[in-house]
Amino acid sequence: MGNSLKVDYAITSPSGAALSVPIAPTAPTALLLHAGKIVGYQHTGASNTVDGRAPEGYRLTKPYTGKLPVNVLCAGTTWARIRQQPQSYTAVIVMSKQPESGPQTAKAPSYHADPLSVSQIRL
């Protein structure tokens, strides 16, 4: 761990369901938490795609994998402090929940909250 942290993730399904890629409206996003507060996050450049891939259906017969960086720290947090006490930090991946079957034919109305899925692990 230098001045960034890479978080590996894998999306699986016991039923081999299809995953809609790019994952929208909230693509997998990496966060770093300390005592339940966000202290670091993923900053990536502007892009016309959600997660850099062309739209496709991905059948989950094997995991859909990726790596995400936590490369920006919030004020008051330092990489030195994280290296000194890694057990005090949690890496989190947040993304939209995908439909359980069939294609997603329309976006939810803007007044509906984006249903999110969250996975976390201690450093």
Rank of each mutant, 00 (worst) to 15 (best):
M1Q: 12
G2W: 02
G2S: 11
S4H: 15
K6C: 01
D8L: 05
D8V: 01
A10F: 06
A10M: 05
A10N: 07
A10V: 03
T12V: 15
S13E: 04
A17L: 09
A18Q: 10
L19Q: 07
L19R: 15
V21C: 06
P22F: 11
I23T: 05
A24M: 12
A24V: 15
T26D: 08
A27I: 06
P28E: 03
T29S: 11
A30V: 07
A30H: 04
L32Y: 02
L33T: 04
H34V: 01
H34C: 06
A35S: 14
A35F: 04
G36Q: 05
G36P: 05
G36Y: 04
K37V: 01
K37R: 15
I38F: 00
V39S: 02
V39H: 00
G40P: 05
G40D: 06
T44I: 11
T44C: 05
G45A: 12
G45L: 14
G45N: 09
A46G: 08
S47I: 00
T49F: 08
T49R: 14
T49S: 15
V50E: 12
D51E: 15
G52H: 12
G52P: 11
G52E: 13
G52L: 09
A54I: 05
A54W: 09
P55H: 04
L60F: 05
T61P: 00
T61E: 12
T61Y: 14
K62E: 12
P63W: 06
T65F: 00
K67C: 04
K67H: 11
L68G: 02
P69M: 07
P69Q: 11
P69D: 10
V70A: 08
N71C: 13
V72S: 02
V72W: 01
L73W: 02
L73A: 02
C74M: 15
G76E: 01
T78M: 05
W79N: 09
W79Q: 10
A80T: 13
I82T: 08
I82A: 06
I82Y: 10
R83D: 13
Q84M: 07
Q85K: 13
Q85L: 06
P86T: 09
P86Q: 12
Q87V: 04
S88T: 10
S88N: 13
S88L: 13
S88E: 14
S88F: 00
Y89Q: 02
Y89G: 03
T90E: 13
A91L: 09
A91S: 11
V92D: 01
I93W: 05
V94T: 14
M95H: 10
M95P: 02
M95S: 03
S96K: 03
S96R: 02
S96D: 05
Q98R: 02
Q98N: 14
Q98P: 06
E100V: 08
S101F: 11
S101R: 12
G102H: 10
Q104N: 12
Q104E: 11
Q104P: 03
T105Y: 04
K107G: 08
K107C: 04
K107V: 05
K107Q: 10
A108Q: 07
P109M: 03
S110E: 12
S110T: 11
S110W: 12
Y111T: 06
Y111D: 09
Y111P: 00
H112V: 14
A113N: 12
A113G: 07
A113R: 14
P115H: 07
L116V: 10
S117G: 05
S119L: 03
Q120G: 10
Q120P: 03
Q120I: 01
R122A: 14
R122G: 13
L123P: 02
